[in-house]
């Protein structure tokens, strides 16, 4: 129980620190969002509009920094992250909410597939070390060292432009409204296939290599020999004794990669013009849309934190030795 409380306290502190930094960072940058907005729309905004904009962005300068900080927390808890002026002053929460599902859906599924497939292949190769299966390793490593944008462009050139099997960009056909119909789901899958495939191929090598190396270490452990001496079936030794132990470090890398789903797929979303969070972050940065950037940073930080918590929980479930601290 104390272990649990300590972890909770740790995560609460980390979240507080991240949110506080997120508050100060834009305020330390040169200029404020309103000046940036004015610059973009030079001469087209009246002085009264400027004043109301300042109020809207909470920049009426009478408030002290501390008061602003308190306000920031209040707004945060009421789910108000301000307004994005590169998206026509729409609330930041709405803008982010429209992008996140695409990223989490596509990249999330790709990450899970890559992890499961890569770890399984790695376990098998490690188990049959020295056999022909070892040949997979250099191939997979080659694909993960190829720059992603290049692989994405090649995939588009072959499967989209030449063969015409898959659309080259966007999450669904232009002119259709997102809805929960079978037809729309089909479109989403068709559009998502290439990006997902390239993501999986690009990250598979790391999972294979990591798992294979851990397998080779674990296979030398006495308990694996004992399991074999007990006459257990090879499949049972492989799964219950070797792979189960070898996959523990994989699991924490997996949780970490889940945390980078939201922020880490900028290149993919650019290459495939996919309407996700990565592309949104890029748009916000080029437009100097501070409220949107701030909101995205917050979401990214929180996902990394949540992924860490998940990793902790998974580890505690799968490795009894980490639970020892509880007692």
């Amino acid at each position: 129980m104390r272990f649990f409380l300590r972890r909770t306290a740790f995560y609460a502190f980390t979240a507080w620190a991240a949110i506080t930094i997120n508050f100060f960072l834009p305020r330390m940058m040169k200029g404020d969002p309103v000046s940036a907005y004015l610059q973009k729309n030079q001469g087209r905004i009246s002085p009264e509009a400027i004043d109301s904009l300042r109020t809207l962005f909470g920049l009426d300068s009478t408030k002290s920094l501390f008061e602003q900080y308190i306000d920031y927390w209040q707004l945060l808890f009421s789910g108000d992250l301000g307004r994005s002026f590169s998206k026509g002053l729409a609330p930041v929460t709405d803008v982010i909410a429209s992008a996140i599902p695409w990223t989490v859906g596509l990249v999330g599924i790709a990450t899970v597939i890559s992890f499961v497939v890569g770890t399984s292949i790695g376990a098998y190769i490690g188990w049959r070390r020295g056999s022909k299966a070892d040949g997979i390793v250099p191939v997979a490593t080659f694909f993960s060292t190829v720059p992603y944008f290049w692989m994405g462009l090649i995939a588009i050139a072959i499967f989209s432009t030449t063969l015409g099997w898959f659309p080259a960009s966007h999450a669904y056909d232009k002119g259709t409204q997102p809805s929960f119909t079978l037809e729309f789901a089909g479109q989403v899958i068709q559009h998502g296939f290439l990006p997902a495939l390239t993501l999986v191929i690009g990250s598979l090598g790391g999972w294979i290599l990591g798992m294979r190396n851990m397998m080779i270490t674990v296979l030398d452990e006495d308990y694996v020999t004992v399991a074999q001496a007990k006459g257990l079936k090879p499949s049972r030794v492989l799964v219950n004794y070797a792979a189960r132990n070898a996959s523990l470090p994989q699991l924490s890398s997996f949780a970490m990669s889940l945390g980078f789903i939201v922020g880490g797929t900028l290149v993919m979303e650019l290459v495939f013009s996919y309407p996700g969070a990565g592309k949104l972050l890029l748009d916000a940065t080029t437009a100097k849309d501070y409220p949107l950037m701030q909101g995205l940073f917050l979401v990214i930080t929180l996902t990394v934190l949540v992924a860490n918590i998940l990793a902790d929980v998974a580890y505690a479930i799968l490795d009894p030795r980490t639970r020892q601290m509880e007692a």
Partner: peptide, 25 residues
Amino acid sequence: QMRAFRWEKASMVFQGAMNALNPII
């Protein structure tokens, strides 16, 4: 046949008392 023979006819106790048991089961 070898798997069926192992442990049924001849069992083993290993050197490393510390590592002979799977730590997570």
